[in-house]
Simulated assay, not measured.
Amino acid sequence: MTLQRIAIDPAMVRGAVELEATGRGLLPHRLPRWARRQIPDRFMVQTSAESTGVRLALRTAADVIELDVQARRIAADAETPFPPSTYELTEAGAVAAVATAVAGSRFVFTFERPEGEIVPGPDATVRFTGLANGAERDLELWLPYHDAVELLELRADAPVAAQPDTGALRWVHHGSSISHGYRAETTTGTWPAVAALRAGVHLTNLAFSGNAMLDPFTARTIRDTPADLITLKTGINLVNGDVMRVRAFRPAVDGFLDTIREGHPETPIVLVSPIWCEPVETKAGPTVQDPDRAEEWSVAGGTEADVRAGKLSLQVIRAEIAAIVDRRQDDDHRLHHLDGLTLYSGIDAAASPLPDNLHPGPDVQRLIGERFAERVLTEFTPELQRSST
């Protein structure tokens, strides 16, 4: 069977803020070029390049679709083989087909050796078959959340076009590795994708593993990104890295919000506090590896005395976020607060513990996504639809 080559129309790509023409294809970015030049460390170079939430929105009657990619994945060394990465096709919010391909390139990085060497490798082909049902279908091809993916060539056995804009609500989210999807099984299993597919909204996921740090360049990126709803989930990375005290946290949150408001004066913004994480509920960071465990297991590197001296714990951050939103709502009626414990609490942790004492496993990723869709997306959708008419 001969497949026809399909030009990858930039209009097909959803969930990216910038597309780079590489000479071989298109490279989606979740930060614009000027912001990428301000990234302060090599770990964020890779995590911000990863494709969480990025997808191709296609309309086609094809039975077979192939996509050539050049994919890069983080690794602790240059030799250990990668497991296959999962690519998914969704239709009407449900997974319709799955294919796999192994990332050919790697970003060799550990926190003990943080140079971040790129080791180039071969391209790969993702192939979906058995798709036809006799009529055109609207499909979204989701890229793996843990890979940086360059789109090289698209082929199919029938014409493929970009899906027309349906007017679905544009949701921009910023968060940490929890929102990025770390420990989820697939991209559609990351909680923002679960929520977006459930609510039928267009997601742009600006979550950067380890790097929800209230960075000014992230605020400016959100400011410049079209959005009908903006949600900001902040706190855990500030404790992870022990990067702030209360004195710095308060104006940093205000400044982050002020910058976003420059481009979105009337857009609803929901500030979300951290979900439950036992090690740093009452103790300060940083979070560190438990030396008594061989497997990954996070514990607090600080103490409750450090918190009394002005450092951050999750309980402190939740109280500060609630106070900041309460204060600002006098002048900003479209700013809202969501307590992260309504998404995942200590009671939830007793039933579904975090597998490394820090990150949600696949079951909790789905739980958070379902709750977020119900408590945020479906709540704001009618308001946003009214404001757009």
Score class of each variant (00 low, 15 high):
Ser352Ile: 06
Glu115Thr: 14
Tyr344Glu: 09
Lys283His: 12
Asp292Ser: 11
Trp34Cys: 07
Val316Ile: 15
Ala21Leu: 11
Val17Gln: 02
Ala21Lys: 13
His173Asp: 00
Leu169Phe: 01
Leu232Lys: 03
Ser313Met: 10
Glu91Asp: 04
Ala162Thr: 02
Gln385Phe: 00
Asp9Gln: 03
Val17Ala: 04
Ser273His: 04
Gly361Val: 08
Leu358Ile: 12
Gln329Asp: 01
His202Ser: 14
Ser209Thr: 14
Leu335Cys: 09
Thr389Asn: 04
Ala158Phe: 01
Val13Gly: 03
Met12His: 03
Gly310Met: 11
Thr60Val: 05
Ala62Arg: 00
Val54Trp: 00
Asp258Trp: 00
Arg59Asn: 07
Gly200Pro: 12
Asp330Val: 15
Asp77Thr: 06
Leu27Arg: 13
Arg30Tyr: 12
Ala305Met: 03
Pro362Glu: 09
Asp77His: 07
Met244Val: 08
Glu374Trp: 00
Leu151Lys: 06
Ala323Phe: 04
Arg155Gln: 11
Ala35His: 04
Tyr182Cys: 13
Ala193Val: 14
Glu370Met: 10
Gly255Arg: 14
Pro159Ala: 13
Ile260Trp: 02
Arg30Pro: 07
Phe111Met: 12
Gln163Arg: 13
Leu354Thr: 08
Ala373Cys: 08
Gly104Glu: 09
Val64Met: 00
Pro144Gly: 06
Gln70Leu: 12
Ser298Pro: 00
Asp331Glu: 14
Glu383Trp: 05
Ala132Asn: 10
Leu131Pro: 03
Ser48Asn: 06
Pro159Met: 05
Trp34Tyr: 09
Ile230His: 09
His180Met: 05
Thr234Gly: 03
Leu56Phe: 04
Asp363Leu: 12
Thr303His: 08
Ala195Tyr: 02
Glu66Gly: 05
Arg59Val: 12
Gly175Asp: 07
Thr52Cys: 13
Arg5Val: 11
Gln365Met: 12
Pro10Phe: 04
Arg293Met: 11
Ile230Asn: 07
Glu117Ser: 14
Pro274Leu: 01
Leu343Ala: 10
Tyr344Gln: 10
Tyr344His: 04
Ile6Asn: 00
Leu139Ser: 06
Pro122Gln: 10
Gln315Ser: 14
Val119Met: 08
Arg127Cys: 11
Asn357Leu: 08
Leu338Met: 15
Arg334Gln: 15
Thr204Met: 09
Ala96Val: 03
Asp147Ile: 07
Pro159Ser: 07
Gln385His: 05
Ile269Lys: 01
Ser48Cys: 13
Pro382Val: 03
Thr381Pro: 00
Pro279Leu: 06
Pro28Phe: 03
Ser352Thr: 13
Gln163Leu: 15
Leu354Met: 11
Asp68Tyr: 00
Thr389Arg: 14
Glu185Leu: 14
Leu203His: 12
His333Gly: 06
Leu3Cys: 09
Thr166Leu: 11
Leu143Trp: 03
Thr221Arg: 10
Glu88Ser: 11
Ser51His: 02
His337Met: 04
Pro122Thr: 10
Val253Ala: 05
Leu27Cys: 08
Leu89His: 08
Gly25Glu: 10
Leu384Lys: 02
Thr125Ala: 14
Pro81Glu: 05
Ile74His: 01
Ala148Phe: 00
Asp157Gly: 02
Leu377Lys: 02
Ile324Thr: 14
Glu115Trp: 13
Ala16Leu: 05
Ala323Trp: 02
Thr186Leu: 05
Glu262Gln: 13
Tyr344Cys: 09
Arg293Thr: 10
Ala168Met: 01
Thr267Arg: 04
Asn357Thr: 07
